Amino acid sequence: MSHTAHIRSHRKPRRSASTIAMRAGVAGGVLSTLAVAGASGSANAAEPVTQTLELPTLTADLAAQVAQSADVTQQAAAGYELRAERDAAATQAAKEAKADLAEAKKKAAEAKKKAEEDARKAAAERAARTAERATLSASVDTGSSDSSGSSVSSNTSTATGSAAAVVSFVQAQVGDAYVSGGTGPNSWDCSGLVQAAFKQVNVDLPRVSQAQSTAGTQVSLSNLQPGDILYWGGAGSAYHVGVYVGDGMFVGAQNSATGVVMKPLSYDPPSGAVRVL
């Protein structure tokens, strides 16, 4: 026995058998639980865990929604495609319009250039005609006779007023072609030229030579004035007409070989004349 055994504070209390048994049982239960848990853990570690997901059931409403969504998507795609086609067409149209505009500008420039060139040529031709008239005027015989011996005037008076307009018109056509039935602007027959000349001063003449030879007052060839109508053949049955322009000269659309010419009266002496103005 210990030397302190008699001291109360150093005595260990005795445990009862029931307490010991209870503690042993608790300990055994804990150990059993740990063993089971360990075995379960080992089993779980050895076998993989498989998780199963349940998908929602495809009901009629859900199918309709899916179909509607597909239709909307398809319509949107069609809309995008149509818009792309329209954009491409607009781009192509713009390119074509730009090309057409460039071509139109090119043609306009060419037309302008041609018009300017034609104007220069016309001016040159007028100058040449003026020079020819001056030469012819200088070579006119003063006081020539026709084939029948009748005296033909070489009146040198200057045309004025309406007569001047008629004379200016016919002189401007010198060099144009002769075409039977021609009424201008670049080809004439004899009566077509005379009719057009008097139309410049608002005088309406008949279309044919026969009628024009009686359209005014008959005048003597020795008393001609610029603007008088000359005719060849009989009055009322004339086969050719022209216009007296002064200085012993006349202008007429003679024939297909000569065209419209300005010649002295001696070139082709007329049969008579009428005065309209």
Rank of each mutant, 00 (worst) to 15 (best):
T4D: 07
T4S: 09
T4V: 07
A5W: 09
A5V: 15
H6I: 01
I7P: 06
I7C: 12
R8I: 01
R8W: 05
R8M: 10
S9E: 15
S9A: 13
H10P: 11
H10T: 14
R11I: 12
R11V: 11
K12S: 13
K12Y: 07
K12P: 05
K12I: 13
R14K: 15
R14H: 15
R14N: 12
R14Y: 15
R15V: 15
R15T: 10
R15S: 09
R15L: 15
R15W: 15
S16P: 12
S16I: 10
S16N: 05
A17C: 08
S18Y: 09
S18H: 02
S18Q: 09
T19Q: 10
T19M: 03
T19Y: 12
I20G: 00
I20R: 00
I20F: 05
I20D: 00
I20L: 03
M22T: 05
R23H: 11
R23P: 02
V26E: 02
V26M: 05
A27N: 04
A27Y: 00
G29D: 09
G29I: 07
G29C: 10
V30C: 08
V30K: 02
V30I: 12
L31H: 10
S32V: 15
S32Y: 08
T33G: 09
T33D: 11
T33F: 07
T33K: 02
L34M: 04
L34F: 12
A35V: 10
A35P: 07
A35S: 13
A35L: 11
A37H: 00
A37C: 11
G38N: 05
G38A: 12
A39P: 00
A39D: 03
S40C: 06
S40L: 13
S40H: 02
G41D: 06
G41P: 03
S42R: 08
S42E: 03
S42N: 13
A43M: 10
A43D: 09
N44H: 08
A45L: 03
A45K: 08
A45R: 09
A46C: 01
A46H: 14
A46Y: 10
P48W: 04
P48R: 01
V49T: 00
T50R: 11
T50Y: 01
Q51T: 06
Q51I: 14
T52D: 03
T52H: 14
T52E: 05
L53D: 13
L53K: 06
L53I: 06
E54F: 06
E54R: 14
E54Q: 13
E54V: 12
L55M: 02
L55R: 11
L55A: 15
T57H: 01
T57S: 04
T57M: 02
L58S: 09
L58A: 12
T59N: 05
T59F: 03
T59C: 01
T59D: 14
T59A: 04
A60D: 11
A60T: 04
A60S: 01
D61G: 13
D61Q: 06
D61E: 12
L62I: 13
L62P: 11
A63F: 03
A63P: 03
A64Y: 04
A64L: 13
